[in-house]
């Protein structure tokens, strides 16, 4: 007795579903992350072939499967080759094209990238650049995305351009999530449950009431409670240390002015200088 058509399609589809899932893993993840034109073609061919086989539209199921295998193995192979050889990479992924250099639009590369001036301006506007003269450098990536580097005077101000020393901001570790204490991040910070217990006690909070707790690099605990009506004080140890240090420095300067003893005056002035240096050094780390 021949298989009814619906059962045939069901079995084919289920089988192809599994196969396609497997093949997708084989190609790797980079296809969806950064699609080039070639990637797009591969994905469409695989999809159409799989659909054709499962609906029984292919010439033969075996032939369809062979086509599917070729269209997954070849791209996978080419990606491996592309990682090894630059020439393969240039052919498969294409090269980036410089569209604007030193504020001048390069018409030739625009033509090569099949971009109209309108396309370019619209892409720039999407990046909040309304005047092409502000652009130092714009490149069309192999994926078709346009990357823009603004001229130095049009770039947003950063601490670096202002010559301000910015403190290091290491990623805070989450030590309590949903009321559950996470031991691994705690140990990674060189802390333990006992320390956490003490800190929570200092804040006057029971661990089971904490929704999320994070520890920053200096061991300050930031809490969020289940009950949002309760105000948890923000840790102030860093700021407090900074301003106390500044006050002590000012005190020393005051004593230096107040004393008659010339030796004491020198000592106070030296101390004030040392404290000023410490304020400069640790200031960026203590204030955010």
């Amino acid at each position: 007795m021949p298989m009814p058509e619906w059962l045939n399609i069901l079995l084919r589809s289920a089988g192809l579903f599994a196969i396609t899932l497997l093949l997708a893993r084989l190609i790797g993840k980079r296809t969806t992350a950064r699609m080039t034109f070639f990637d797009l073609v591969t994905v469409i061919v695989i999809g159409v072939t799989a659909a054709a086989i499962s609906m029984g539209l292919a010439v033969s199921t075996a032939g369809g499967l062979i086509a599917l295998a070729v269209w997954t193995v070849f791209p996978a192979l080419i990606y491996v080759l592309a990682i090894k050889y630059k020439t393969v990479r240039d052919i498969v992924q294409g090269k980036e094209a410089v569209l604007i250099n030193h504020g001048k639009i390069l018409e030739d590369s625009l033509l090569e990238s099949r971009l109209t001036p309108e396309d370019l301006l619209s892409e720039l506007r999407r990046k909040s650049v309304f005047s092409f003269a502000d652009v130092e450098f714009a490149v069309m990536e192999p994926s078709g995305e346009i990357s823009v580097l603004l001229k130095k005077d049009s770039r947003p101000v950063t601490p670096k351009t202002l010559n301000i020393a910015a403190g290091r901001d290491s990623v805070p570790q989450t030590v309590i999530m949903d009321g559950i204490i996470m031991d691994e991040p705690l140990t990674a910070m060189g802390l333990n449950r006992k320390w956490l217990g003490t800190e929570l006690e200092k804040a006057g909070v029971a661990p089971e009431n904490v929704f999320v707790a994070q520890v920053d690099s200096t061991g300050q605990l930031y809490l969020d409670l289940f009950d949002d009506a309760i105000q948890v004080p923000r840790p102030k140890a860093r700021e407090l240390a900074y301003y106390t240090l500044k006050k002590c420095q000012a005190d020393c300067e005051l004593y230096a002015l107040g004393t008659q003893d010339s030796e004491a005056k020198r000592m106070y002035a030296r101390s004030a200088g040392v404290l000023a240096d410490i304020v400069d050094q640790t200031g960026p780390l203590l204030t955010k």
Binding site: M189, G190, S217, T218, L240, A241, T244, C248
Partner: peptide, 15 residues
């Protein structure tokens, strides 16, 4: 007090 605070920070700081 400040010295103690800085020493604590120096103990915990990873960088």
């Amino acid at each position: 007090g400040v010295r103690a605070t800085l020493e604590t920070f120096a103990q915990i700081e990873q960088n």
